[in-house]
C-alpha cells in the first residue's frame, strides 16, 4: 500500500468547505468532449477533477457469441476497464470482480434509455476505459457512455446523467452530505452513493451505496445530486452539439 492513503484526515469538511475547497453541493471542474476515438462509431471523454475516462461505442453490430443473441432487441454491453497505471498502486490488467460488477450495472442503466427494440439480434458495445482514477470513475464512465451512444447516433429516450454523493465528517465527527466525491472522500467518508438519472424521464437508473445513511440523509444527498445533475446534463448536451456548431472543424 502507498503511504498517503494510510493517513486518515482529521476531517473531510470544515465550516462548509471540503478538502479541495469545494462547497458541499459543488462538483469538480468538468470537461466533456465527443469524437475522441475516430475508429469508434461514437466516443466521449469526460474529465472530472483528476478522474479521466473515455467511452467508445461500437455498434449496433452483429452479436457474438451467437447464443447470446436476443431475437426481439439489441444487447447493450458495457465493458468497464481501468488502465494499469490509472491508479496509485498498479492494477493488474484484465477485469476483476469489481470491473465485472460495474460493467453489469452500467449496462443495465443504459439498457433502459437505449431503444434496443430498434436493433433486434444486435450488440451495442460500450467500452469504458478509466485513464486516470480519482474516485467516482463509474459515474464519470456512465456520463461518457451515454454521450458516446448519442454521438454514435444510437436512438435513446434520454441521456444518462450520473454522479456520486456521500457523507463526509467534519472536525467533530458529524456527517454532512456532499456531491461528487474525490479520492479522500471516497476512501474515508461515512457513506457513498453511485447515482444516475434520466432527467427528462425522471427515473433512477443506477443506485449503489455503501456506508451508513439515514433515509433523511439520503433524501438530502439525492436532492443535492439532482440539482448538480442539471448542470451536468447541460454540459453533456453542449458537448454533443459542439462538433456541429459553426467554427468547429
Amino acid at each position: 500500500m502507498s503511504k498517503m492513503s494510510d493517513d486518515k484526515p482529521k476531517f473531510l469538511i470544515k465550516s462548509g468547505k471540503r478538502l479541495d475547497g469545494r462547497k458541499p453541493d459543488e462538483v469538480r471542474p468538468m470537461e466533456m468532449t465527443v469524437g475522441v476515438i475516430p475508429n469508434a462509431d461514437g466516443s466521449a471523454m469526460v474529465v472530472c477533477g483528476k478522474t479521466k475516462v473515455i467511452a467508445a461505442v461500437y455498434g449496433p453490430r452483429e452479436l457474438h457469441p451467437r447464443h447470446q443473441v436476443l431475437n426481439h432487441k439489441a444487447r447493450v454491453r458495457v465493458k468497464y476497464n481501468m488502465l494499469s497505471f490509472s491508479v496509485e498502486d498498479r492494477k493488474r490488467p484484465g477485469p476483476g470482480r469489481r470491473e465485472v460488477e460495474i460493467s453489469k450495472v452500467l449496462s443495465e442503466a443504459l439498457e433502459r434509455v437505449v431503444l434496443t427494440d430498434r436493433f433486434p439480434m444486435c450488440a451495442i458495445d460500450v467500452f469504458v476505459t478509466v485513464i486516470q482514477a480519482d474516485a467516482s470513475t463509474r459515474v464519470a464512465g456512465l456520463n461518457a457512455a451515454s454521450m458516446a451512444l448519442a454521438d454514435a447516433g444510437v436512438p435513446m429516450r434520454d441521456l444518462v446523467v450520473s454522479l456520486s454523493f456521500g457523507k463526509s465528517y467534519d472536525e467533530k465527527g458529524a456527517g454532512h452530505m456532499v456531491v461528487d466525491l474525490e479520492k479522500e472522500e471516497d476512501n474515508w467518508g461515512m457513506g457513498d452513493v453511485a447515482y444516475a438519472v434520466a432527467p427528462a424521464l425522471n427515473e433512477i437508473l443506477l443506485l449503489q451505496m455503501d456506508g451508513d445513511l439515514t433515509p433523511e440523509e439520503f433524501a438530502k444527498g439525492r436532492q443535492m445530486a439532482d440539482e448538480a445533475a442539471k448542470a451536468i446534463y447541460d454540459m453533456q448536451k453542449q458537448a454533443l452539439k459542439a462538433p456541429y456548431q459553426e467554427g468547429s472543424k
Binding site: 475516430p38 475508429n39 488502465l83 494499469s84 497505471f85 490509472s86 498502486d89 485513464i131 486516470q132 482514477a133
Partner: peptide, 22 residues
C-alpha cells in the same frame, strides 16, 4: 496520467497509443 510514475501518448497518423509506468 498523473497517477503513473511516467506516461505518454503518441500518435502516428491515425494510430494513437497511451503508455504508462508503475
Amino acid at each position: 496520467v498523473a497517477k503513473a510514475e511516467g506516461s505518454a501518448t503518441v500518435s502516428i497518423g491515425g494510430t494513437s497509443v497511451i503508455a504508462g509506468i508503475k
